[in-house]
């Protein structure tokens, strides 16, 4: 119980002496001072560093830190047909920006954007791995649709693309895939077609799947989430504290991922208060659920490296304290 993992981009650079410096490497590559092979060497060293951080902080299931991802959509928009690079726009309510892709033609799977890094990670560690993809609904929402001009068709085509990505990961040996769906909580009016798209992406696939929603409330869409043919529902319980209760109230047959530590503020939560939340989860049936994971509320890349590491360690510290705190009512 309380397997710990991370759920998004990890910091790409660190101020720890001796670490790979991907920022410098990318600058040097852009100015022609190093070649693609040298940049790739630095990317892989950075992935090794982020895996080491996760293991050191007690994460049972590790990720590649999405070191190659600047945002959840660009890796897929650049790997597959039908997308063009667009203007700069803010990533939700963060001081982080990405180039919003336009869909300019039929969305067609070309070659997996993520499976090479899954294989790379598999070669680096024996730990269980959480691979990830952008969910079909969010993939569509992150883009401007200049081609289909019909949202249901767009969602369906994105679902087919994401399904191919998940199949590629399953074929490469992944056992768990996180499906990033931040837009779900912002669009409760579209939850029907959104969940249909996710179902299209995962139904019958032989890999366990986690749909993770962040930055938004899930109360209004909870019933639809629980009915999804996925194995686990996860949510940011910091930006929206009410999401904790929604996760607690779900059916016993579904696994949960609780995003309990704030991935967007350096302030460290008191370990005791986190341990109390864990105790509540235990009391509400956590041991009976198929799985119960603890995660940060979102990607830890919103924090400097040292704070991100501290937040991961905090999850482990809270679990260690779990037995020492009184059970709270919820």
């Amino acid at each position: 119980m309380f397997e710990r993992t991370v759920v998004g981009n990890q910091p790409k650079i660190s101020e720890v002496p001796g670490r790979a410096n991907l920022r410098n490497a990318r600058n040097r590559f852009d100015s022609g001072k190093i070649d693609a092979a040298a940049l790739e060497e630095c990317v892989q060293a950075t992935i090794r560093d982020t895996v080491a951080d996760q293991i050191d902080a007690g994460m049972a299931r590790v990720t590649d830190g999405r070191i190659r991802w600047d945002d959840p959509v660009s890796p897929f928009a650049s790997a597959h047909d039908g997308f063009a690079v667009g203007g700069l726009i803010r990533f939700f309510d963060n001081n982080v920006y990405y180039r919003r892709p336009s869909i300019v033609g039929p969305v067609r799977y070309v070659r997996s954007a993520v499976v090479d890094d899954f294989r790379l990670l598999r070669a680096m560690t024996d730990r269980p791995i959480l691979a990830s993809v952008c969910g079909p609904f969010s993939l569509a929402k992150f883009c401007v649709d200049d081609n289909y001009r019909d949202s249901n068709t767009l969602y369906h085509e994105c679902a087919r693309l994401v399904r191919a990505e998940i199949e590629a990961l399953a074929h490469a040996g992944a056992d768990w895939v996180q499906i990033d769906e931040p837009w779900l909580g912002f669009c409760p009016g579209e939850i029907g077609p959104a969940t249909e798209a996710i179902a299209t992406a995962v139904r019958g696939i032989r890999v366990k799947t986690l749909v993770f929603v962040y930055f938004a409330p899930i109360g209004a869409i909870a019933r639809h989430l629980w009915e999804l043919p996925v194995d686990m529902i996860g949510a940011d319980c910091v930006t929206e504290p009410g999401n904790l209760k929604v996760l607690l109230d779900g059916p016993a047959t579904k696994a949960r991922a609780f995003g309990l530590v704030d991935a967007r503020n350096t302030r460290l939560e008191p370990v005791g208060s986190l341990a109390k939340q864990l105790n509540t989860i235990v009391k509400r049936g956590g041991e009976r659920w198929p799985e119960c994971w603890l995660t940060p509320s979102a990607a830890l890349e919103f924090l400097p490296h040292r704070n991100a590491v501290a937040k991961m360690k905090l999850l482990s510290q809270a679990v260690a304290q779990l037995a020492d705190v009184p059970v709270t009512a919820m």
Binding site: P11, K12, I13, E15, R23, R26, N27, D30, D70, L88, N95, V96, Y97, Y98, T266, E301, F302, L303, P304, H305, R306, N307
Partner: peptide, 12 residues
């Protein structure tokens, strides 16, 4: 002042 965080692309 904290450590570096990324804002866009390779900018921190």
């Amino acid at each position: 002042i904290s450590g570096l965080v990324r804002s866009y692309g390779n900018r921190y």
